[in-house]
Design a protein around this nucleic acid. Structure first.
Lengths: 208, 208, 208, 208
DNA sequence: TATGAATGAGTATTCATTCAT
DNA sequence: TATGAATGAATACTCATTCAT
């Protein structure tokens, strides 16, 4: 009862666990934005979840849109890195796609980038939007590049690689939502992922 | 206390253009929700766009979530009807899919049902959520049914028709967003739709 | 204790005394702005003084600057009317000036228009500033006009009437502040007003 | 814990340009207060303009009101000194007044002491208010003294010298504001100053 | 059927101030 | 001497909702 009801004024010592306050905020905020969407996350909420005051959040991020932009860009950069790692192996493309999809679906949160971009468009500054779009592009670029390489190698027939990249991400994202819509149809995550990748690979008309 | 304006009995009042106030509100609100998303549309906004007072909106819709639910359910029902019409023809499945996709892309607004449901989840009552989910299911049911029929007829090989339905909608929806991401790649709407449906049909590995 | 701790929700009856809520707010706000200056009056303060909620204040005045502008313009209009009344008599100019000065000094509050304009300049919109400046000009115009007429009639020698108007108001305003600075020197308000008008009339070098 | 940079003992540290940090802050803050008024200048603003951190400002000035008081007192002292210099010459009073007025008007900023005192009154401590008022009085004392001397010498007729001092300052200050109200009427600063001093000297009824 | 007036709870943001280093 | 981190309280403004008419 006497421990930390009222936090002491001024500056307490740095976090014990080595993570800076700024990173903590960014990390927690990212999760909240993903879970509830930009408009439904208030700075109050973020501060409370981070166990700091709102003023502290504002000390590190000048506006809510700044926090959001930072969170999203950093998130997309992390995804990008994962993509790079996966796609830089010598595995066949289909296996790489499987790994990417599985990783995406394993993330507890539902990362629907498109819906985020839309939500944000109304609120973000031009500059912030551009930052996010650049990070987004980088992700797709990587996938597109891998598809193109596979086409060049003859691994898959030639077609529009950009479209292929976008559609793949959209299908994987949909897989995430499926849990909600009809969870009981798939025995395991692997099963779901396999089916999605197969579908992507073979289309409706060429299934086994 | 008795000053109500004289009014023809029995017949609901109509505006000059034949639409009732209630319908006008629902119609306009639908558009606004689609354009900006649930949290960014205020009852004030709706009232203003409808050229009535906020109180009038509340006269017809008890809460904002009621308005939203009604709007979305009605929208999905309309889409459902359209699907029914398209899928009840004797055309080959692929052509039907093309027609559906094209209709979807022609709608100026970007109907990303999944992101909508997520946005709303926090705010809606259990009952309202269920209403919306039922309407959503009905849409997918129809598509799924058509896929199953095509499988039965041997038009396409057998596979998970539910998954097929979901993925098709996700791909078409993605097509809507493409304008933003890389607008310049397609000569026309038909071109885009064709490519998406082809991709859906043949997959990555079976392109022409 | 049970009477009006929590004011009932919804809309209570119109004010008993016939003044509309909007007027009450404007009136009270005017006094507060005059007393403390624009930045030191918060919308919360205003609401509290008016015994309504902040939301009610915003119901009538969309922004704080709107409220301020309205308050100042209305105030200057009132002063303008008083000037018109006083200057439209057939009394000699000096007596008219005396009456104006006395009325100004009798107002409990210290109306230092110049300082208000300065304070406001940072916060107001171009449009709002213009509204205030127009109201201000109208006041000075009236005085200037009276001076010019007196010059034409030969009541006073010709000189810059605009400058004369501005300086007169500045001197009268200073009289208001004198209470603070050296209150004990004047036996009565009439005494102070007389001395100021005399000074204005005769200057430093032509005193009795 | 011992890492203080080596430092010459005894002599207070100076910036390259010879002004101490404390003086820099005071100087810059003075300008900001004059330009925007007490409430509209934040400690953050001051720190930023001074290119130090807020904590540094607080290192030298315990509170914002302290900073303000110091700034204003020092400013009034400087003005006082200037008055002393001007009034201690053997020039005729009218010429001295002209010089004072011109100096006042040349200062880019609009020093309306009265409005400043009012703005501050709510925030300052009793002690701080007294400090400022003393500095203010000293200024007026000097002018009053000069007027009295001129009366004693018969240079001007006898009248209330305190009132004369106050009104003079008020008229000169008004001159400063005139730029805004009707800028185009005066060919030059000298012209404006001359007219004001003439008006002060001769009054409305004794112009040339 | 429709509305004007009012509200309580929130939302983003700012600010003076403190304190350990 | 100087600062980076943190805070509590305020500030302007919004919004879903209610109710008497």
């Amino acid at each position: 009862m006497m421990q930390r009801k009222h936090r002491t004024l001024g500056r307490p010592r740095k976090e014990q666990d080595g993570t800076s306050t700024k990173d903590t905020i960014l990390h927690i905020a990212t999760g909240m934005f993903l879970e509830k969407g930009y408009p439904l996350v208030s700075m109050d909420d973020v501060a409370q979840q981070c166990d700091v005051t709102k003023a502290t959040v504002y000390y590190y991020y000048k506006t809510k849109t700044d926090l959001f932009t930072d969170a999203m860009v950093q998130l997309m950069n992390r995804i990008h890195e994962r993509i790079v790692v996966i796609l830089s192996t010598n595995e066949p493309l289909k296996k790489q796609l499987f790994q990417f999809a599985k990783g995406h679906l394993q993330a507890t949160v539902d990362i629907d980038i498109n819906s985020f971009m839309k939500e944000a468009k109304t609120s973000l500054s031009q500059e912030q939007l551009q930052l996010m779009q650049e990070a987004e592009q980088k992700m797709y670029d990587e996938l597109e590049h891998a598809l193109k390489k596979a086409m060049d190698k003859g691994e898959i027939p030639g077609s529009n690689p950009r479209l292929g990249a976008l559609l793949f991400v959209s299908m994987v994202t949909t897989g995430n939502n499926m849990n909600t819509v009809f969870k009981n149809s798939f025995s395991s995550l692997d099963d779901l992922v396999t089916q999605i990748v197969d579908f992507y690979w073979d289309g409706l008309a060429n299934g086994s």
